[in-house]
């Protein structure tokens, strides 16, 4: 079957793929899809890893291949680039809101920026403390809210 999908269609399909660790946001929301190019019936999807050792990258790549080939794209190339390095600044405002509603305090701009002043995603109090800067996935830190006495995760600034 010859693909008749255009660039926008491919982006829409990619938006339907949830992040394997944080399914409330898509891999497009996360900012790891850098570009989609279609030429001579070949589809080139360029991605960048979040963390060098993130084990979810393998899963994400196989998801992309599965979703796009099910949509009829036979001639697909996945390319990984390292520069510019992935940053949480690429997570858009809407996705940050989704993270907060899911119970994960979203990242602020820049690395380390004010990340001790993280508001609790449940009660919005800023009276919180860091339990550990390393959490259940490479991209998250563990926090504790001193107001509502709930532990919560923070998507680290990166």
């Amino acid at each position: 079957m010859v693909s008749v999908l255009n660039k926008e269609n491919v982006w829409e399909l990619l938006e339907s793929i949830p992040d394997p660790e944080i399914p409330v946001i898509s891999i497009v929301d996360l900012g790891i899809i850098r570009s989609v190019d279609i030429s001579d019936q070949k589809t080139l999807v360029t991605i960048t890893p979040t963390y060098s050792g993130c084990p979810a990258m393998f899963e994400i790549e196989s998801q992309i291949k599965e979703v796009l080939s099910n949509a009829g794209i036979g001639n697909l190339e996945l390319k990984t680039v390292l520069a510019p390095a992935w940053t949480t600044d690429w997570i858009n405002a809407e996705a940050k809101k989704k993270l907060e509603e899911y119970g994960i305090a979203p990242p602020k701009p820049g690395i380390f920026s004010e990340d001790t002043l993280v508001a609790c995603p449940f009660c919005k109090s800023e009276n919180t403390s860091v339990t550990s800067v390393f959490g259940s996935t490479p991209c998250k830190a563990l926090f504790y809210c001193n107001s509502c006495e709930q532990p919560f995760e923070h998507f680290k600034c990166h």
Binding site: P49, Y51, S52, G53, C54, P55, V133, F134, S136, P138
Partner: peptide, 14 residues
């Protein structure tokens, strides 16, 4: 335990 293994994961990724 989680922190040290997270750091390990970063290093192996690098």
């Amino acid at each position: 335990d989680i922190a040290l293994t997270n750091i390990s994961l970063d290093l192996i990724g690098q």
